[in-house]
Design a protein around this nucleic acid. Structure first.
Lengths: 170, 170
DNA sequence: AGTTTATGTCAGCATTGTTGACATTCCAAG
DNA sequence: CTTGGAATGTCAACAATGCTGACATAAACT
């Protein structure tokens, strides 16, 4: 594992020699980049009584209006109890509307209110600005590779969730 | 901000049209990929009394043995108080050695013990395996773009820290 | 020598993850 | 139809890890 090298044929035309050093760089890049990725929304959220978890919930409710708690927590990868605390705050503050399911009354269908949409927009805008700047700086060819590696890094169920969201644009 | 489109000349030969939809995909890819990125070490850490913060500390101590608390917290992007709790646990458990600085006695120079190195190795191995698999699956051209976009996404000070680490391989 | 600055530690609080217990609703077996 | 189990969501308590504030010690500056 620590021989510092690992490779195998790829594509029949070029070889992939992945040294531990190269992999380590990727790992550290991922860590530092994620800090930047969350920095802008975090700054905005810090001014109010919300955190990153509230942002994530609002993002995906906005993406799929009417989604259920159960669906949401499978996307977010947290327990329903943890999500519930966040949702309760958002509902109490009038940012999220939680309606008892019509077909199955055990379920709750979640929607953003107008105010919820406003805040979500503010947070997403900040994140998009950074992403757009990064894309421009890195260039168009880079964007393809970026997405490819990220997708390959996901767990199988998350890759499925990701694909589902892409196929169902609002 | 929500006109759904934003582009400008790039490189003089191709144009970058970045729709909000494209940017959103990147944002969600980043979110899902980071879950996978941390999943393997988290699983190992969950079996013992440590968390992600302990992993990060050990990783960078291993990268730069003898580093100070001050330097470490600027890399990790947390407060010294937060880092201190984590370091205290690691020192008490004999995974990290904290020596009073020789030149400046206010400083503490941090080193991994043998046992600390063992655990760090286990955690890093798990993360490298996933990273290697992702790189192979995405292909060599993708890796370049991946790193480029990540680097462009970092805050300026983190980009500096990242570059410093690359220039000083162990 | 005395004040200011830098480094690190200790204490307490907030966010957000966890598990456990429980209420409500649905569904399937009898 | 009823009854028992499964699914969904809520409430409570605990753990990890951010944060700010107060402080001790060492260095640096005047």
């Amino acid at each position: 594992m620590s021989d510092g090298r690992s490779g195998s044929g790829y594509g029949g035309e070029s070889l992939l020699f992945l040294t531990d050093e190269q992999l380590r760089q990727g790992i550290e890049a991922m860590f530092f980049a994620y800090q930047g990725f969350t920095a802008d929304p975090d700054r905005i959220l810090g001014e109010m009584a919300y955190g990153r978890a509230h942002h994530r919930a609002m993002h995906f409710i906005n993406r799929a209006p009417g989604t259920t708690v159960n669906n949401l927590l499978s996307i977010l990868g947290v327990t329903k109890q943890s999500l519930n605390r966040v949702l309760r705050a958002l509902v109490e503050d009038g940012l999220v509307d939680s309606r008892v399911g019509t077909l199955d009354k055990r379920e709750r269908n979640l929607y953003l209110t107008d105010r919820g949409r406003d805040l979500e927009q503010r947070l997403s805008d900040a994140q998009r600005i950074r992403m757009r700047a990064a894309y421009k700086q890195a260039g168009p060819e880079a964007v393809q590779g970026f997405k490819k590696v990220l997708e390959a890094m996901m767990d199988a169920d998350m890759r499925r969730a990701y694909a589902d969201l892409r196929e169902a644009p609002q």
